[in-house]
Design a protein around this nucleic acid. Structure first.
Lengths: 213, 213
DNA sequence: CCTACCGATCGGTAGG
DNA sequence: CCTACCGATCGGTAGG
């Protein structure tokens, strides 16, 4: 986690009231990078082309994001923030286990329509397993948060007696997140053979007593 | 899949009787590349350093493996061949479903002692999801084979009445392979929090009536 | 934010 | 017409 990303996190996204032009440009760059990374991949996207797409020079781009990796981190964070808002919101999904898994199903179905994003995250989560990778702390924290949130949803279901009797809730969040990640790999390689939401739904049907929407 | 790798596959590994010196050198290079890829990663390993480690020049290295990708493919194939021989053998695992999953548990336990290899495969399976990646056909075929082999094992267990009543065998091989892959990602990021063989064993306990060794 | 550049390294290929 | 290399260098691109 570099200093730029860390300092930006302190005052949150888009919260720099004093430099509206800089924030707009920054948002534009993140948007362009998001598209580029998701289509041609991270490595094949060049900072020069990205700068050109945003109407700035490479040096101008480097003013906002001093390294390519820092831009990558910003893209990842925005993506996660958007997914959270769109699929989990600030509403019931954080407390209601059924709502949580319904949201998860919608997210996985959405991912199946956007291979570029899925590919980007799959690639980066592997790259970032190297301890010296700039996005390593981000991904470690991301999975810890994901496991924690999902385990809360599972505990809620267990408390309401909605888990089937054979299910062991201990470590179930690890298994289900692993299933989702692993399905992405097989789906990326054989998109016509693998149906991610269908597989996840089948697994959830084996875990939860009631049918999800 | 380039021509060199394709022609080598025709007569199998180490089967070029006429050029023992070349085969030895080739094996030495694969061994060195295997170590290098597994420690510093594929992209960070340079052909020049690899050549030096084998006591040949870069041009000499390129004589045996005309591209870095072709060397990568040779490493992947050797790794898969060794794993298959070591953990699945030519024996019971190809017919006995219980033996198959016992072997799978041993393989996963073995992987947990070799993070470099796990990291390499995780990284490459993501990279290779790009249709124009040299290892794309290899990984597509690899997963198809893996699903087929595992589904045979599952069908054997179903036929012998060893699956628990709530289990749906359809697509179960997809789910279990996804679980294994996904566990690797989380384990690479948080090795102290995730126990891959333990999680797989727990999942198999929920599927199979008898306890695996 | 700009132009004008840097030191280093990549994978691949030439002739012999 | 083969294997097993060599020293030298190609054009292009990376992040800064």
């Amino acid at each position: 986690m570099n200093e730029v990303a860390a300092s930006r996190r302190q005052h949150g996204p888009g919260a720099s009231r004093n430099y509206p032009k800089g924030e707009r440009r920054r948002a534009q760059i993140i948007e362009a990078a998001f598209t580029a990374f998701g289509t041609v991949g991270y490595r094949n996207a060049s900072m020069l082309q990205l700068a050109a797409a945003c109407g700035v020079s490479r040096a101008g781009l480097l003013h906002h994001f001093p390294t390519k990796e820092s831009l990558l981190e910003a893209v990842l964070e925005q993506r996660e923030r958007r997914d959270d808002e769109r699929f989990f919101g600030t509403g019931e999904a954080t407390r209601d286990g059924l709502e949580y898994f319904a949201s998860m199903l919608r997210l996985v179905a959405h991912n199946q329509d956007h291979p570029g994003i899925v590919s980007l995250f799959a690639l980066l989560s592997s790259e970032a397993s190297a301890p010296d990778h700039p996005a390593h702390p981000y991904f470690v924290a991301r999975y810890e948060r994901a496991r924690c949130a999902m385990q809360s949803a599972i505990d809620d279901l267990a408390h309401r007696g909605l888990l089937r009797p054979h299910v062991d809730p201990v470590g179930l969040s690890v298994d289900l997140l692993a299933l989702i990640d692993g399905l992405q790999i097989q789906w990326l390689l054989s998109p016509h053979d693998i149906d991610m939401p269908e597989r996840l739904r089948a697994r959830l049907r084996d875990i939860i007593k009631v049918e999800l929407p």
